[in-house]
Design a binder for these strands. Sequence first.
DNA 1: TACAATTATGAAAAATTTTTCATTATTGTT
DNA 2: AACAATAATGAAAAATTTTTCATAATTGTA
Lengths: 222, 222
Amino acid sequence: MEILIVEDEIKIANTLKKSLIKEGHFPTIAINAEVALELINEAQFDIILLDWRLPKLSGMEFCKQLRRNGNKTPIILLTALTDVSNKIEALEAGADDYITKPFSFEEVKARINAVLRRYRANQNAIQIGDMIINLVDRTVESEKDIIKLSDREFELLKYFLYNKGSIINKEKICKDVWGIEFNPFTNVIEVTIKNLRKKLEQNSKHIFIKTIYGEGYLFIAE
Amino acid sequence: MEILIVEDEIKIANTLKKSLIKEGHFPTIAINAEVALELINEAQFDIILLDWRLPKLSGMEFCKQLRRNGNKTPIILLTALTDVSNKIEALEAGADDYITKPFSFEEVKARINAVLRRYRANQNAIQIGDMIINLVDRTVESEKDIIKLSDREFELLKYFLYNKGSIINKEKICKDVWGIEFNPFTNVIEVTIKNLRKKLEQNSKHIFIKTIYGEGYLFIAE
DNA sequence: TACAATTATGAAAAATTTTTCATTATTGTT
DNA sequence: AACAATAATGAAAAATTTTTCATAATTGTA
């Protein structure tokens, strides 16, 4: 995993770097915000460890700037300050978490894991109607329940999501979801849609698969 | 789907908007780059349709600026220019595609779909060792072949990916992948790891699940 | 070297998913 | 209203996945 360490104290930066390499990660050091920004524009980082105190542009200001520019990489601020208002300030600047110095590497590891777990969950979770669908974990949650979909049902749901608002005919569904040419002698598509519909309707009032007679299906989420 | 239309010609913008709404999308209009940037910082767009000719800051310059600031939203440039060098210029500015005016809505639709398909594939595909793993489509490709994993096997692989470089013991694997407490009377974990290993080893020279005797498993990708 | 602990393995049982099937229901056309 | 075309449905068959099982192999300890 690519980790950017923005820290002007070389000793701290190198210690972190070594420990992260030991963990199988790929850390990169930037000694100030300027260097960091260049690196961010060149490479894709999975997470940023950002010291609060940096020369010129503070870590917090830099954090704000990144967020203002639409950068959503998870950020953990490293701070010596322990005042509660600093925590609020850090989170308001757009940081996902903060670690107070001095810190153990175990804590850094734990925070990185926690922030990434949350980030990945948010990244891949989308709200559709009154449900939350995670495209990586393949979970579907309504207000009532967690809906258990089989693989094929989930593939079909994902397909409808990607084609929301469009009428899709059976031939296209067969090709794109089953990966085979349409066979008019089988009704497996109708059956699978029926099964998916049933599960969605039992758990949602705002999501429908509407049949357009003779044309196909239209996925609607209100 | 949230679509940002950056177009100063109101007629064109409104025509596009209406057609996109008809398709079930959620378009928003910005009449210049400044307005667009504000909207981009406030909301999350799935794709941006960006006119080349904008007052003050051209679409291309705006595109460059977005990319420079780490914004990776798919962008389609709308241009009246047909010179081949403009196409190259557009792509070099960081656009994902371009559409030449005048255009039909069918073409806009087709381009949006193509760009999103490619974007989603790239977004969710990661290279690990000599394989490409798509976490949404759940496909695993090596240079030789497409590896067919069952659900459980894929969940286990994903888990190892997220914990690359860490030794994970069986109790933790059981809890995090199977979602149940470890039962010492079963060897289902060993069997599933064996099955996954076999498939990985048949297709990759650079990915291993190493056994640390008495401790757990370590996922290695070179 | 012998033994214990842990892990790996091939085969089969059990569970689940996917598809097929026959029938019913709905929609459109004449 | 009658009929044809299309879609939906419950049940069961077929296919696949997941787990169990008994045994073998590997690793660590005494």
